[in-house]
């Protein structure tokens, strides 16, 4: 693919995206409009994340792509391949070794460092969208900090279900100012949003970029008497025995038997290599 520029996008476009990223970092949680380009993968499949990664990558970077926490899901493979071809950067599956991580729907379990950047793919950047479909109105609500409606939604959840029934894309308030959609990560990941690494969010179809700088306060919205809870399946991983990681539930036979495995494949692999075992690997190890 040598006919394309490094990381596919032309330099002018990258500069435009970098300006949006810098603005996003300067105003944490604020959605910066940007002239999203058509990418050779469909809108809704990570075009925002891909553009942010393309504008952020340097030839020295080591790139990791995960989808649902895993490096080997088809869309992750496809995006990794895209950058291998267009940027020729080194890629890795090890969170530890990556300098730039593009993700869809998960934050890795391993704590990220100050010298790392994580790029989220965002389908709908507007946390108020399903309460108010009009862009003109939601932008006004953000600018005037009118977030009462967001709490009305949570209030209605509790009054109907006895609990806040948002389990992913759980809204947060960033740096005491903007309410932000953290992308469809499970709410289990929300506490990790306060981290040492730079977090960039790209929504290609919706033409928005936003960011959370390192060490920024990120609070999940809740009520004092119904505090936010980061939940996960109440099991250890059946492969590595981890009790602190987010789990995928897998149906293993026609009778509907289940097993639970780490959604973060690299985390699980590292633990198994370090000798940890779970329900289904104990016998093998023994």
């Amino acid at each position: 693919m040598s006919e394309y520029n490094f990381a596919y996008l032309d330099e002018q476009t990258k500069r435009m995206i970098r300006r949006a990223i810098l603005k996003g970092l300067a105003v944490p949680g604020y959605q910066v409009p940007f002239a999203s380009r058509e990418m050779p993968m469909p809108y809704g499949w990570g075009t925002g994340g891909v553009q942010v990664s393309a504008a952020t990558l340097t030839p020295d970077d080591t790139f990791k792509v995960i989808d649902q926490g895993a490096d080997d899901t088809t869309n992750a493979v496809s995006i990794r391949k895209f950058f291998e071809n267009t940027a020729g950067v080194e890629t890795t599956e090890e969170t530890e070794k990556a300098s730039l991580i593009q993700t869809r729907h998960r934050i890795p379990e391993a704590k990220l460092r100050e010298d790392q950047i994580i790029v989220y793919q965002v389908p709908i950047p507007e946390p108020l969208r399903f309460l108010e479909p009009r862009e003109t109105e939601t932008r006004k609500m953000h600018s005037l900090e009118e977030y009462g409606l967001m709490h009305v939604k949570l209030y209605e959840d509790i009054s109907q279900h006895g609990a806040i029934s948002t389990s992913y894309a759980y809204p947060v308030k960033v740096s005491g100012r903007y309410v932000m959609d953290p992308s469809p990560i499970p709410k289990f990941d929300n506490p990790k949003l306060e981290m040492d690494a730079i977090q960039l969010f790209g929504a290609g179809r919706e033409q928005r970029i936003y960011a959370v700088p390192p060490h920024t306060k990120v609070v999940s919205l809740d009520f004092e008497d119904y505090p936010f809870e980061a939940t996960k399946a109440d099991h250890p991983c059946d492969l590595c025995g981890a009790e602190d990681s987010y789990l995928d539930e897998v149906i293993t036979d026609d009778a509907g038997s289940r097993m639970f495995v780490c959604s973060d494949t690299d985390y699980c692999r590292c633990r198994r290599e370090a000798g940890h075992t779970g329900r289904m690997t104990k016998d093998v190890a023994a």
Binding site: G148, H151, E224
Partner: peptide, 12 residues
């Protein structure tokens, strides 16, 4: 409740 929440009440 909306007006209460709009001015910062957050005890359900």
């Amino acid at each position: 409740g909306e007006r209460l929440m709009a001015v910062g009440d957050c005890h359900y």
